Simulated scan of single mutants.
Amino acid sequence: MRGERLAVDREGGDHDESAQDGEEQEDHPPVGEPGELSAGPLIFWLIYKDKDQLVRNAAAGSFNFAVTLTIVSWVAGILQFTVILAPLGWLLWIIVFVGGLVLGIIAALAASRYELYTYPLTIPILT
């Protein structure tokens, strides 16, 4: 086919290089980032909600925080469509990224010390 090349990689296998030079093809799902909702904390909460108070609190807090960050990210994305409020959307995205990263690390450290941690400014969905 025109425009497609077959290349041999170092292991000797063939693979398709239909992407243009300099472009990379992504064969795996993207890695999670702050503001992206995941089902992990919800699954842990469902399994351990009646067994261990520490795990229940950590899972519920993590899920609530993820939902809050996701909602704020969506609002920031919507603000990008307005000329006047676009800088506010950028600021919200920076806050979501830095806040998710920093507060996630603080929560992980608290859990490693077997301490209960409450995320600030979260929507209480699970308790």
Rank of each mutant, 00 (worst) to 15 (best):
M1K: 10
M1T: 13
R2V: 07
R2S: 09
G3S: 02
G3Q: 08
G3Y: 06
L6P: 01
L6M: 11
L6Y: 08
L6H: 07
A7V: 15
V8P: 03
D9M: 02
E11K: 08
G12Y: 01
D14S: 14
D14P: 01
H15Y: 14
E17N: 04
A19F: 05
Q20H: 07
E24H: 12
D27Y: 13
P29E: 10
P30E: 13
V31C: 04
E33Y: 14
P34M: 00
P34L: 01
E36V: 12
S38F: 08
A39H: 08
A39Y: 13
A39L: 15
G40Y: 10
P41N: 15
L42W: 11
I43E: 07
W45A: 10
I47Y: 14
K49D: 12
K51R: 14
K51T: 12
Q53V: 09
Q53N: 08
Q53Y: 03
L54N: 06
L54C: 02
L54F: 01
R56I: 11
N57F: 01
N57K: 12
A58H: 14
A58T: 14
A60W: 09
S62A: 15
S62L: 11
N64P: 03
A66L: 11
V67T: 07
V67N: 05
T68S: 10
L69F: 06
L69W: 04
L69H: 09
T70E: 07
I71P: 02
S73N: 06
A76S: 03
G77K: 11
Q80V: 07
Q80S: 15
F81N: 13
F81C: 06
F81D: 09
F81Q: 10
T82P: 10
V83S: 15
I84F: 10
I84H: 09
I84M: 09
L85C: 12
A86R: 15
W90D: 08
L92E: 05
L92N: 06
W93P: 00
I94D: 00
I94Y: 00
I95W: 12
F97W: 13
V98E: 04
G99M: 02
G99W: 03
G99E: 02
L103F: 01
G104L: 01
I106L: 07
I106Q: 04
A108N: 02
L109G: 01
A110S: 06
A110C: 00
A111R: 11
S112Y: 13
R113D: 12
E115W: 03
E115H: 03
E115K: 08
L116N: 13
L116M: 12
L116V: 14
Y117L: 03
T118C: 00
Y119D: 00
Y119F: 11
P120C: 00
L121F: 15
P124N: 06
T127E: 15
